[in-house]
Simulated assay, not measured.
Amino acid sequence: MTVKSELHDYFRQGREALLWKLDGVPEYDARRPLTPTGTNLLGLVKHTAIVVAGYFGEVFDRPFPRPLPWAEDTAAPNDDMWALPGETRTQVVALFHDANAHADATIEALDLDSPGYVPWWSGPVTLSRILVHVVGEVHRHAGHADIVRETIDGAAGLRTDNSNLADGDAAWWAAYRARVEAEAQRYR
C-alpha cells in the first residue's frame, strides 16, 4: 500500500464514521444543538462537506461544481454548521457525497507532491499536506459527532460492526462511569 492510498483510506474511514452517526437518528435529533456552541449532527456533516469541497477543489484549481453559499464571505457566521430553514437531510447528505466524490477524483488525479494554493492560508501546499490536514479535520468532526450521537441515544463507537469500545453491558458502563466520577470528585 502506498502512502497516498493509506491516507486516502483513512480519509474514507473518517467520512464513513461521520456519516454513520446520522443512521437511524430522528430528524429533530439530527438537527438539534447539543452543545453551548450549537454543535449538531447534520451541521457537522454539512460543514465537513464544505471543507472537503474547498480543500480538494479550489486549492487545486479543480472547482467544486456546485455553489457553496455557506462558505462565501457574505454568509452569516456558522451558516455552514447547521441545516438552514429549507435544507433537508437528503440535500446535506447528497452534498457530503458529492464533495467526497470530487475529493476522491482530485486525489486520484494528482500526485502527493502536486502543488496547490490555499487562499485562506495565503500559501502554497501539496496534495500530501492537504490530505493530512483534511484527514485530521474529518476525524476530528467524526469525534464530535460520536459524542453528540452518544448524547442523543447512547450509540457510540467507530462503526456498527466495530465500536472500538470496551465490551460491556449497560450495568458495566454505569459502574465504570461511577468509578470515573468518584475519582473526579476527589478533586472538587
Rank of each mutant, 00 (worst) to 15 (best):
F11Y: 12
R12I: 14
R12C: 13
Q13I: 13
G14Q: 02
E16H: 08
E16S: 11
A17L: 13
W20V: 03
K21I: 11
L22I: 05
L22Q: 01
D29F: 10
P33Y: 03
L34A: 07
T35I: 00
P36S: 15
P36M: 12
T37V: 04
T37W: 00
G38Y: 00
G38T: 10
G43L: 12
V45G: 11
K46W: 02
K46C: 05
T48E: 06
T48P: 00
A49R: 03
I50M: 08
V51F: 01
V51P: 01
Y55P: 02
G57P: 05
G57M: 09
D61I: 07
R62I: 01
P69E: 00
P69D: 03
P69F: 13
E72G: 09
E72Y: 06
D73W: 09
A75P: 02
A75R: 04
A83T: 07
P85H: 01
G86L: 05
R89C: 11
V93R: 02
A94S: 12
A94R: 10
H102F: 05
A105S: 11
A105R: 13
A109V: 10
A109S: 15
Y117F: 15
W121V: 14
P124E: 14
P124G: 14
T126K: 04
V132G: 09
V134R: 04
V135L: 05
V135G: 02
E137D: 04
